[in-house]
Simulated assay, not measured.
Amino acid sequence: FRTREFEQMEMEYFVPPDEAPSWFEYWCEERFRWYRDLGIPADRLRLRPHDPDELSHYSSATSDVEFLYPWGWGELEGIANRGDYDLTQHATASGEKLEYFDQASGTHYVPHVIEPAAGATRAMLAFLLAAYDTDEINGEARSVLRLHPSLAPYQVAVLPLSRKDTLTPLAGEVLAAVQQRWMCDYDETQAIGRRYRRQDEIGTPYCVTVDFDSLDDKAVTIRDRDTLDQVRVPIDALVDELADRLG
């Protein structure tokens, strides 16, 4: 499919000619794993080798990482074994040898290139589509973006239960502690339930609620976006607890 603009991430990985096939397989596996590790379900991803009649004239092997969009399978990324085509073309045009001398073997060779080329905007669209979900809580519909923490705009939101001056200083201390490690949002407007929903919609994995009990027990409540579980944690242990959850 076509978009008005296309942002691409690309790497040229130079390898000895006889190692090119194994490095090609390595990068196919690594690039596929990258999407899985960032939250795309296995049943919405596939690695599709190109048929011989699809291969570019310079490629001995190419595979596409494809995502199951709402309209069908589409390419996210291509990984190609480009052989020595790029360097030989540069050498021919420049008149300069582009060879590598391997001191261990005492041989010269033109490196082969393994090229992973990924669509950055396509990948982000795939992450958003895979993360978007709806469910129901107490009879009310909820929209939630189940983004991997590494992709979420905020990893933590600090939410004082009230805007009263008695809670604001402590909430500020909690925010100062966690924002040294993670991107954080601070929201004290409207009812706490509405604020939870806002954080769910933008994909924030954890909300930290500072309530009036926090003034006495020096503890806060961590709410999990996906499970909705809420646990009480001492403020002194909050950063360690979030680190265990967020990695």
Rank of each mutant, 00 (worst) to 15 (best):
T107P: 00
S143I: 14
A157Y: 03
L145K: 03
D102Y: 04
E140P: 04
T88G: 05
L147F: 07
E140I: 11
L87M: 02
G83R: 02
H108A: 03
P70T: 07
T168Y: 00
G78E: 03
S150G: 12
D102G: 11
A93Q: 13
L159M: 13
A104Q: 12
F67W: 05
V65G: 08
Y69K: 08
Y100R: 06
V65Y: 00
E140S: 13
R146T: 03
R163Q: 15
V158F: 04
T121A: 11
T92A: 15
R142V: 15
G119W: 00
P160H: 00
P169C: 03
S63R: 13
S105L: 13
D64S: 10
G78R: 00
R122M: 09
A80T: 12
S105W: 03
L159S: 01
L125E: 06
L87W: 05
P111E: 04
E66V: 09
L145E: 04
G83C: 08
P149Y: 08
L87T: 02
G106W: 09
Y132R: 15
H112F: 11
V113W: 06
H112Y: 14
T166S: 15
G72I: 08
L98N: 08
R82E: 05
L129G: 06
L125Q: 08
V65I: 15
P153S: 11
A141T: 14
L129V: 13
E66Y: 10
I137P: 02
K164H: 09
S150T: 11
Y132C: 10
T88M: 09
Y85V: 03
V65C: 08
K164F: 06
T134I: 09
Y85I: 03
D135K: 13
T168R: 12
D86G: 10
M124Q: 12
L87F: 07
T107Q: 13
A157M: 14
E99A: 04
P111A: 00
K97I: 01
A123K: 01
P149Q: 02
D133R: 12
L167C: 04
R122S: 03
A91I: 00
A131Q: 07
D165E: 14
N138A: 14
I79V: 15
T107W: 03
G106P: 12
F101W: 13
T121H: 12
E140D: 12
R146K: 15
L87Y: 01
G119V: 00
R122Q: 11
L87G: 07
L151N: 11
E75M: 11
G139W: 09
P169S: 03
D133C: 07
L129S: 07
L167D: 03
A157C: 12
V144N: 02
S63K: 14
